[in-house]
Design a protein around this nucleic acid. Structure first.
Lengths: 248, 248
DNA sequence: AAAAATCCGGCAGAAACCTGCAAGAATTAT
DNA sequence: ATAATTCTTGCAGGTTTCTGCCGGATTTTT
């Protein structure tokens, strides 16, 4: 069998089954695993599939995420960068939804080894791109408005965890009223997450500081750390320093 | 034999078999391999075939596979169309992962009012785009290789449902060995889904018919309906008719 | 932390390739 | 018709490519 022919067969097989194992291909076309591996490397270089440990996966399988325009993206990137610095290998981390959170998940270092628990499908999707991160999805009814899982079943599941860290994308935050939101179901979920985490990190763009929404997620003492795009010494953050918050 | 004549013969061979080996041609027309090689180079320069190490392949060879890539998207659309016709308002429907399934979810009519339960994050994402569909996500650990939720917790959850319908994207299907797959975790999930559904619909492109993978998902009697891109009367489907499957 | 699977780089034999050359065939010029 | 020229073909040799194997490094899994 011609080399080219073999490679086309591999491509075909990958597109058909979304993934292939080196050992299977080796058996199927009767060549050594080394040869298959070399073929996969070549095909991968040509961008026709994605090589992974032990085999390869179709790239149509992987590339379906679209980077939608997000409001004030640059600020969110700064926040994301700071947030990443709080995470350590081996941690169990909760995350909620929200574009700032997604931005953060996207830039997590490839080498990070941690377990993430999330209620956000997009969040889960981003996390899946990272090879060494274990992703646990909370099940339940999906809310169309917030794109996250909500409901009693979800809350019950969340309560089972004792996370090291929770990242909360906030809608409004204020020194007096704490974190507030305007979607009742979402507040319930966030409350459950807060209660199940040792440390709660609130992520907020400066614009949301000192704003209040209709429903309280947690009082001012409900979270310990605040991350914004502003430098920690910025005057706007002084009131939070006064409340003994860790400002990153 | 004239040079021209010989080259036409080579072209004929290539078009007939899609590939030729230098050694074969040399033997067949009783000229040295060098001559064949030189002919192949000339023909390749003229663009009448593609020379590769060891022989040559027909122009349409690379194309034919590429064709099937695009083509198979069309096939999936046909399957999706048929699958949609099986769903009725008010149904509780299970879906697994797989690109064919995603294609189907994408084209669901906007007016459909039903509840979908899924283990696929991409599937959930697609379903979220439909305003009147309630989406329930099964929670659990996400498998990197298959992009769906797996594990005992997920299976336990799945068992709680009594769905009207399950759409199963299959990896391999055969009249004797039933539906098979090559990822153990995935087979467990699919089995749970099958057991929790009144009617099981298998979605498969024709190319996967009569193929077998390593682990059985269910025996031939485990599903009731088969949907492919072929018309229901196609001879390839006759064996499935004989097994009393509903062919759409 | 150990055990298993996978990967990587180098090696070696075989097969395929290329280059130059020379003899014969075909074509053209005289 | 003959000589000169060009084409074609096979061969010899040296080079490159392909492939399987092996040992050690790396990654994954238990």
């Amino acid at each position: 069998m011609l080399k080219k022919e073999r490679q086309e067969l591999i491509i075909h097989e990958v597109n058909l089954h979304n993934k292939v194992l080196v050992a299977d291909l080796s058996a199927k076309i009767s060549v050594s695993e080394d040869t298959v591996r070399r073929d996969l490397i070549e095909l991968s270089d040509e961008g026709r599939l994605v090589k992974v440990h032990g085999g390869a996966i179709s790239n149509s399988f992987r590339n379906s995420y679209k980077h939608t325009d997000v409001y004030s993206l640059d600020q969110k990137k700064v926040i994301a960068q700071k947030a990443v610095s709080v995470i350590r290998d081996g941690m169990l981390v909760f995350t909620t939804g929200g574009t700032t959170l997604l931005e953060m998940l996207r830039i997590l270092p490839r080498s990070l080894r941690a377990t993430f628990v999330t209620v956000s499908i997009q969040g889960a999707f981003e996390l899946m791109q990272h090879p060494h991160i274990e992703v646990i999805l909370i099940g339940g009814k999906l809310s169309h408005s917030s794109q996250i899982v909500v409901g009693g079943e979800a809350i019950h599941r969340i309560r089972k965890f004792n996370a090291d860290l929770a990242f909360l994308g906030v809608n409004a935050i204020d020194t007096e009223r704490g974190i507030t939101d305007n979607d009742y179901e979402v507040t319930l979920i966030k409350q459950a997450i807060i209660e199940s985490s040792a440390q709660v990190v609130a992520l907020s763009i400066a614009e949301k500081l000192n704003t209040v929404q209709k429903i309280q997620v947690c009082p001012p003492e409900g979270y310990q750390t605040l991350i914004t795009e502003l430098p920690p010494g910025h005057p706007l953050l002084q009131p939070y320093h006064n409340k003994n918050k860790t400002i990153v």
